[in-house]
Design a protein around this nucleic acid. Structure first.
Lengths: 233, 233
DNA sequence: ACACTCAAAATTGTATACAAATTCGCATAC
DNA sequence: GTATGCGAATTTGTATACAATTTTGAGTGT
């Protein structure tokens, strides 16, 4: 049995499955069964079942009684809903961060920005390095929410960011927009470090709005939404 | 084995436990064990475990590995966090409802208001009837979010409302504020029926702010917060 | 009277056995 | 060739047995 670093197998399985889904290694629409996962992770069905329950609660998989589970597929409606909420949550979390950030917090955010810049400056970088920059960019929002101090808000935002991360890792979109994303992230962190609550919040909201429009615009470019979204059956 | 009306025992147990907790029949701080619940509901531990998992995910119970579960206790921090989020979510949901409500939706809201008025007009009403009015008043917000059409937002708001409902059912506070609550609810529904998006949203946010101040003020009236909140150990 | 030790009890974590339901494929009839 | 029906295989739902850990409490020594 796998003993990664968590206390219980349930948590290990949950984290493993979540990572597999968010990174697109198990794509949206893919069917996942308890037995397969149990065999793959070398554990019994029990912890796998409990992990599936939590994943379903987080909206990463959908399951119908006695019919198995399927990795949640993307659709336009879900994106509009998620980004509408994320604009509020991310904006508020960033306001709180601007109000509460300590010197150490600010240094941490600066470090993450520097890491993004470093990864961006690598010539002819690999896909792995591109993924790393995406990861750090999304983690930046998680850390900002953590700094904000509202744990409930932090948890909710992380749930939505999981879905966003699943999307960018699966589709690897807006490759030409990374420069803009870095600039917006820098602007948000600048406002937080300056303690400008209103500016930080508004920049965060504008950033989320921009991401939403960017994604929706790219989706529009696809001629057939159904064909684009349906990854499997 | 109990076969209420759900397909699976897990769902039945989850709903039963959730109801017991939200209505204060199992008070905050109370210890809950899998065996007790399994015996109480006449099922095995397996569906009870899965229900506990979901309850923990929803923040209604907290559990530590191999130490059992405890019904989540109230504290000031949690209230500030929850109401800060609820103000955003409820405000947005109400805006969406004002934009999307059909004639049938509006009639449904009116009916709920009328039910509140009917229950309020009963002279020397029983505790049961008071609870009913509280229930309908909180359900009003759930229905408004449902009408808004953003399912994700609806689900998130329901989670927070569960905690609010647990609180009022457990403590039965602000008995003298019910008249004000009814007036605010009426104002919100009026704005929704008029299709005034901005007004509906602002009234909803003001209503949540008022509820928060009301609760915090009552908490201040208690001399010892710790003694007030700690219901059991 | 107090502190310490150790064993027993209680409780959750995991594995496995069995039941119920759904799905899929093959055979058969038309 | 197509449709239909039935049965095997697959998959989840539930129950139970066992393992691991924590808690509890009695007993003992000082």
């Amino acid at each position: 049995m796998i003993k990664e670093r968590k206390n219980t197998l349930r948590d290990s399985v949950f984290e493993s499955l979540k990572a597999l889904i968010i990174t697109g290694q198990i794509p949206p629409g893919a069917r996942v069964t308890e037995n397969d996962m149990a065999a793959r992770l070398n554990v019994s069905r029990t912890p796998v079942r409990e992990a599936f329950n939590r994943l379903e609660r987080d909206g990463l998989v959908v399951g119908r009684p006695r019919q198995g589970y399927v990795v949640t597929e993307f659709n336009l409606t879900m994106f509009r809903e998620a980004f509408d909420i994320r604009e509020m949550l991310d904006g508020r979390a960033t306001e709180l961060a601007a109000a509460n950030a300590t010197a150490a917090d600010k240094a941490r955010l600066r470090d993450m920005l520097a890491e993004c810049e470093r990864l961006a400056a690598i010539p002819d970088r690999s896909t792995r390095e591109q993924f790393e920059e995406l990861q750090v960019g999304i983690d930046l929002h998680r850390v900002i929410a953590e700094i904000g101090g509202n744990e409930m808000l932090h948890g909710m935002l992380c749930g939505i960011l999981d879905k966003c991360q699943q999307y960018v890792w699966t589709e690897l979109l807006w490759l030409d927009e990374w420069q803009l994303t870095r600039e917006e992230h820098t602007g948000i962190v600048d406002a937080i470090c300056a303690g400008d609550v209103a500016l930080a919040g508004e920049r965060a909201r504008a950033h989320v709005r921009g991401s939403r429009e960017n994604i929706l615009r790219l989706l529009q470019a696809k001629s057939d939404y159904q064909g684009f979204f349906a990854k499997a059956s």
